[in-house]
Amino acid sequence: MSAQTISRDGTDLVKAFESCLKPISGRKGFFTTYICPAGVLTIAWGHTNDHGRAFKAGEVWSQAECDTALAQDLTTFETSVSTILKDVPL
């Protein structure tokens, strides 16, 4: 997998449209799993068990873990798009 090339501005744009959901009451900066509208177990910034770090229902992640998963997810998606769009500058 290639290194992530999305800029900080790009990551901030993603964060503006995607929320780090299901904060734990009384534990600032910690998040737990939830079922998204599509019925999929999710945590953090929309991370699922389809790729990257796996998790179980009820698991708790820190803000740093959520942000790391987002960066890894973006790298995965960026690699997939670059593979498909070989002759198109992005």
Rank of each mutant, 00 (worst) to 15 (best):
W61S: 04
H47K: 12
S19H: 03
K56N: 15
F17L: 04
E18P: 07
I43T: 12
A3C: 05
C66T: 01
L41T: 12
F77A: 09
C66Q: 00
T48F: 09
T79S: 13
K22L: 04
H47A: 13
R8N: 10
L21W: 00
W61G: 05
T75K: 13
T83K: 15
L41K: 12
S62A: 05
G26D: 02
T32H: 07
L41H: 14
T11N: 00
F17S: 03
F77S: 00
T76V: 10
E78V: 01
G39S: 04
Q72A: 14
S7W: 02
A64I: 01
D67R: 06
L90S: 04
G29Q: 04
T11A: 07
G26W: 07
A38Y: 04
T5I: 08
T83A: 11
I84W: 10
T68Q: 14
T48S: 14
K56V: 14
G39N: 05
I24L: 11
R27D: 12
R8D: 08
F55G: 12
D87V: 09
F17G: 05
E59D: 15
F55N: 14
A57K: 15
L90V: 05
V14H: 02
S25M: 03
P37K: 15
A3K: 09
I84M: 13
C66V: 06
K86I: 07
S25E: 14
V60R: 03
F55M: 14
C66K: 02
F77H: 13
A16C: 01
D9T: 12
T32F: 07
Y34D: 08
F31V: 09
S25P: 09
W45R: 07
L13Q: 01
S19A: 12
H51N: 15
L21A: 11
A64K: 10
D50L: 14
D67W: 06
I35D: 06
A54C: 03
T79D: 15
I43Y: 10
G10S: 00
R27S: 12
W61V: 10
Y34H: 09
V88W: 08
G58W: 07
F30R: 06
F30H: 13
Y34R: 07
T79P: 00
D12R: 03
L70A: 07
G26E: 03
S25H: 06
L70E: 06
P37L: 11
N49A: 11
T68W: 06
V60N: 01
I24N: 05
P89C: 03
A64N: 05
G29W: 08
D50A: 15
D12A: 08
F31W: 06
G58P: 03
I84R: 14
G46D: 08
H47C: 02
V81T: 05
G39I: 06
P89G: 01
